[in-house]
């Protein structure tokens, strides 16, 4: 019997615990984000799936079928819990996101400036992704570090499978939530994808989480 396989097999119960951990983490993130960006950012109850990379891309496409093109921000994080976060939003929402920090005292550039557009999108992505991932890590007694966020501009949804360089044989833990910035009418998706290397640790961390009560 292959013990390592046993260790990383997620049961339905593990999935339910992970969903609740995410739910609490995203709730805390939403609450603390308000103190940082002076915005009410709502994060829906997250959904957890265990998928192969191929299915994952199909799943993202299925959920974003209404939008012809997406902007995506990708950011990697690593700790015991290691993976990638993707913030996806319709290209049409970019302007609204860019205007979130329009009261900034620097830099003196107009809204159409590509550098400012990119920087503001990256900043909001960085803040949202960082808040969510950090809170998950905090609940599971982990500490994570982030790589700089990258903007994948106007990624065509149909090309997602060709564009992404994910290993098709690997199973990914996929967590999806819808974020909604109140008063700005901006909606998007946040995906956290963790690979097989995090599974064994995550399974133990979830058990430890429940053991606290």
């Amino acid at each position: 019997m292959n013990t390592s396989q046993t260790d990383t097999t997620f049961t339905k119960e593990d999935g339910a615990i992970l969903e609740e951990v995410m739910n609490i983490a995203f709730g805390k993130a939403s609450s603390e984000l308000a103190t940082v960006v002076d915005l009410r950012i709502l994060l829906n109850a997250p959904k957890v799936e265990f998928l192969q990379a191929d299915d994952l891309l199909r799943w993202i496409k299925q959920d974003t079928a209404d939008n012809d093109t997406l902007n995506m921000i990708e950011q990697n994080f690593w700790g015991k819990y290691t993976g990638s976060a993707f913030l996806a939003f319709p290209t049409s929402a970019s302007k609204g996101l860019v205007s979130l920090f329009e009261d900034d005292d620097l830099p003196p550039m107009d809204e159409e400036n590509p550098l400012l557009v990119k920087e503001n999108l990256l900043e909001i992505g960085n803040i949202l992704i960082g808040a969510c991932v950090s809170k998950v890590a905090e609940l599971l007694d982990d500490e994570v570090t982030f790589s700089p966020p990258r903007l994948i501009p106007r990624m065509v949804v149909d090309n997602l499978a060709n564009e992404a360089r994910l290993d098709p044989d690997k199973v990914a833990i996929l967590i999806k939530t819808v974020f909604h910035i109140q008063d700005k009418d901006i909606k998007g998706f946040l995906f956290l994808v963790a690979g097989e290397e995090s599974m064994a640790w995550l399974k133990t961390a979830l058990q430890n989480f429940m053991a606290k009560f």
Partner: peptide, 8 residues
């Protein structure tokens, strides 16, 4: 400080 984020 509040969220544990990184900023670049």
């Amino acid at each position: 400080i509040n969220l544990g984020n990184h900023y670049f």
